[in-house]
């Protein structure tokens, strides 16, 4: 409940300040436009479209999700949060907020890809939905803990992509593979290894994040 209250505070704050939503919306709009202009009338393969989808998602996450903690640090309200709740509550609240943001962002990106790119054809929607679900959870968890780390650093802008790349790389590679499988129409039972890797990534990142957050959060 406390974490949900923190999420509600963040969401209300976000609706008033538009810290993350504007950054995400502009980034999605610009990157998809640039991809469309650069492709022109050329026909691109299904696999390439699937790859481009996760590239857009990865960089969009970079541009918007760090705000969870950076905005608190910039406004000087980090101490206020310290005085209100335990570290685990704070991490959970920020994670719920980032989960909502990731799902919203990725629904929009996937929807835009499906109407703008004719080669974006998913034959096994259930498999894609599983990849989408666990992929988004993984992105949200990783982005939240990385955001907490970089909020304490002086060069926030550059550090976020640098730290995110090695942490998100295994996730993105697995998601690329699963997207390819879903475009090929592979069955879920034939993709169990990749699905298992995805779930393991989420569990490991979630556990490590909760364990590490106490040390990151306190000066």
């Amino acid at each position: 409940m406390k974490a949900f209250a923190l999420y509600k505070k963040d969401w209300q704050s976000e609706l008033r300040t538009r810290y993350a939503i504007n950054a995400l919306a502009m980034f999605i709009l610009v990157t998809i436009s640039v991809i469309m202009f650069s492709i022109g009338n050329e026909k691109i393969t299904e696999y390439l479209t699937g790859g481009l989808l996760w590239v857009v998602i990865f960089f969009s996450a970079m541009s918007g999700l760090s705000r969870a903690f950076v905005s608190e640090e910039e406004r000087g309200t980090t101490m206020t949060l310290h005085l209100l709740a335990s570290p685990s509550t704070i991490f959970s609240g920020k994670l719920i907020f980032n989960l909502l943001l990731v799902f919203l962002m990725n629904f929009v990106i996937t929807f835009l890809f499906s109407i703008l790119f004719t080669s974006f054809i998913v034959k096994n929607i259930a498999l894609f939905a599983i990849a989408f679900l666990f992929g988004n959870i993984g992105i949200a968890i990783s982005s939240t803990i990385i955001a907490a780390i970089i909020s304490k650093a002086s060069s926030k802008g550059t550090l976020y992509p640098v730290l995110s790349f090695p942490i998100l790389l295994p996730l993105i590679l697995t998601l690329l593979e699963l997207t390819k499988f879903s475009m090929d129409g592979n069955s879920i039972s034939g993709s169990l290894v990749e699905i298992f890797v995805l779930i393991c990534y989420d569990v490991i990142m979630g556990t490590a994040s909760y364990l590490l957050f106490d040390f990151i959060w306190k000066e």
Binding site: S13, R16, T17, R75, G76, T77, M79, T80, L83
Partner: peptide
């Protein structure tokens, strides 16, 4: 258990 007041404590300006 703690109430804290200081010049470097900030509340949320947008609320």
């Amino acid at each position: 258990y703690i109430g804290f007041v200081s010049p470097y404590l900030f509340l949320y300006d947008e609320f």
